[in-house]
Design a binder for these strands. Structure first.
Length: 208
DNA sequence: GATGCGATTGCCT
DNA sequence: GGCAATCGCATCT
């Protein structure tokens, strides 16, 4: 029996993890941990010290470059340029006037690709996530890209953030799912036939 | 400067 | 299951 390592102390995934084909990165992100360290003033109602939130990714979607009509990188614009940038950075955008979506940039620099984080299982900091979301429904806490960002207090400030460094927001290794299921991506109209959604079929925390 | 709409959510029926 | 909310961005004029 080895001593249990606190999830928050798992080291960030290296840049080389993300510097690979987007579809491969997407599949292997399942089971990984998304770590968010809140400053006391970021905690609703306040806190004595920093609060660590940890979530296990159970559902993601791959968005490719100019060959993918559903991707923001279908055309290169000031907003989507980040998807051509260094891998392991966050791409966060505001959607439908009411929520944020978080992606992780993949592929080597110069090649566009990103993985949308769609759902996760809460592992640590459940109470604070519930406060940030304004609900006690654990199953719905991180189910959906907008809910996930709200529960982890991720917004525009993290657009371009380097997720391979320890700090307020990073990705770490975790327990991969026993199986990985695929399906078409959700909520898109163009290229809706491509099975680039990956999820843990045994997790009750996946969306839809 | 104006317009149309989206990688969604939450509320209402 | 239907639909309004809400605003940044891309794409026109």
């Amino acid at each position: 029996m080895r001593p249990q390592v606190h999830p928050a102390f798992a080291p960030p995934l290296p840049r080389s993890f993300f510097e690979r084909p987007t579809l491969q990165v997407a599949r292997e992100l399942l089971g990984c941990r998304l770590v968010r360290v809140l400053e006391p003033q970021e905690v609703p109602g306040g806190a004595e010290g920093p609060v660590v939130l940890v979530a296990r990714l159970v559902e993601v979607e791959a968005y490719l470059g100019p060959a993918d009509p559903a991707s923001h990188a279908y055309r290169r614009t000031p907003r989507s340029a980040i998807m051509w940038g260094p891998p392991g950075r966050a791409y966060v955008y505001f959607s439908y006037g009411n929520h944020y979506c978080m992606n992780v940039v993949a592929e080597p620099e110069g090649v566009a690709g990103a993985v949308l984080l769609r759902a996760a299982e809460p592992l640590e900091g459940l109470e604070v996530m519930q406060k940030l979301r304004g609900t006690h429904d654990v199953r719905q806490l991180l189910r959906g890209p907008g809910r996930l960002t709200k529960a982890l207090a991720v917004d525009r400030r993290f657009n371009g953030w380097d997720l391979t460094q320890p700090g307020p927001l990073y990705l770490a290794a975790g327990q991969p799912p026993a199986r990985v299921a695929t399906s078409p991506r959700i909520g898109i109209r163009r290229a809706a036939d491509r099975p680039w959604r990956f999820f843990d079929p045994q997790s009750p925390f996946v969306s839809r």
